[in-house]
Amino acid sequence: MTAPPPPLVLAEFRDPDTLIAAARRAREAGLRGLDAHTPFAVEGLAAALDLPTPPLRRIMLLAGLAAAGFVYALCWYSAVIDYPLVLGSRPLHSWPVFLVLSFEAGVLGATLAGIAGLFVSAGLPRLNHPVFDGRGFDRASQDRFFLAVSDPEADPARLEAILDGLAPLSVRAVAT
């Protein structure tokens, strides 16, 4: 039996500066599971939310190196061990020829790992999120700024007390 998801509380704001201030206050108050939904990119929002750096770059690097190493080893094995042909007195281990295939395999491996990592980190193929059920949330793609708090200790009254003085347009719980 799985645990129920933590409650989701949405705070709605008119402008990005207030959203950034609200995110800082919520983070300083110890709330976890902060997320923001805005109609355009807001500079400084990632720092205000204190989002962790995703490990996608390292994963892509390791996958690319592994794919390149595997293809290089495969080329070496096939040319030196499995089917050695001496043509024009060239050496069996002709590494410059192997590098082209290894490079291409490395790029392909890193690309496939990046695509898979993007899907996993975005939580896809999840087709619906509880935040979409929030009243007025469709304005997040037009002119409103939302701070979503997914914390077991989050409730609208506590979040409203934390955001006191920032004048959110609304603070409400969303059924999960």
Rank of each mutant, 00 (worst) to 15 (best):
T2F: 09
P5K: 01
P6G: 06
L8N: 00
L10F: 04
A11L: 01
E12M: 02
R14I: 07
D15F: 08
P16F: 06
D17K: 09
T18C: 06
A23L: 04
R24N: 13
R25Q: 13
A26N: 11
A29M: 05
A29K: 01
L34W: 02
A36S: 10
T38P: 12
F40A: 14
F40L: 13
F40T: 14
A41P: 11
A41C: 08
E43V: 14
A46K: 02
A46C: 08
A47I: 06
A47Y: 01
A48I: 05
L49M: 07
D50Y: 00
D50A: 15
D50M: 11
L51Y: 02
P52N: 06
P52G: 13
L56F: 01
L56A: 10
R57S: 15
R58L: 14
I59R: 11
L61G: 14
L61T: 15
A63N: 12
A63F: 03
G64F: 06
A66S: 15
G69Y: 04
F70V: 15
L74Y: 07
L74C: 10
L74F: 11
Y77G: 10
Y77N: 07
Y77H: 11
A79M: 10
I81T: 14
I81V: 15
D82S: 15
Y83I: 09
V86P: 07
L87H: 05
L87Q: 13
G88A: 12
S94L: 03
S94T: 12
S94D: 13
W95L: 01
P96T: 00
P96Q: 00
L99E: 03
L99T: 14
V100Y: 03
L101R: 01
S102N: 10
F103E: 08
F103L: 15
E104N: 08
G106N: 06
G109M: 04
L112Q: 05
G114C: 12
G114D: 09
G114L: 05
G117Q: 05
F119N: 08
A122V: 07
L124C: 02
L124Q: 07
P125I: 11
R126L: 11
L127E: 05
V131K: 00
G134T: 05
R135D: 13
R135V: 14
F137P: 11
F137H: 08
D138S: 15
D138I: 14
A140Q: 09
S141R: 13
D143H: 04
R144I: 11
F145H: 09
S150I: 03
S150D: 12
S150N: 09
P152T: 05
A154C: 03
D155M: 00
A161G: 11
I162G: 03
L163I: 02
P168W: 00
P168C: 06
V171G: 04
A175G: 15
A175I: 05
A175F: 01
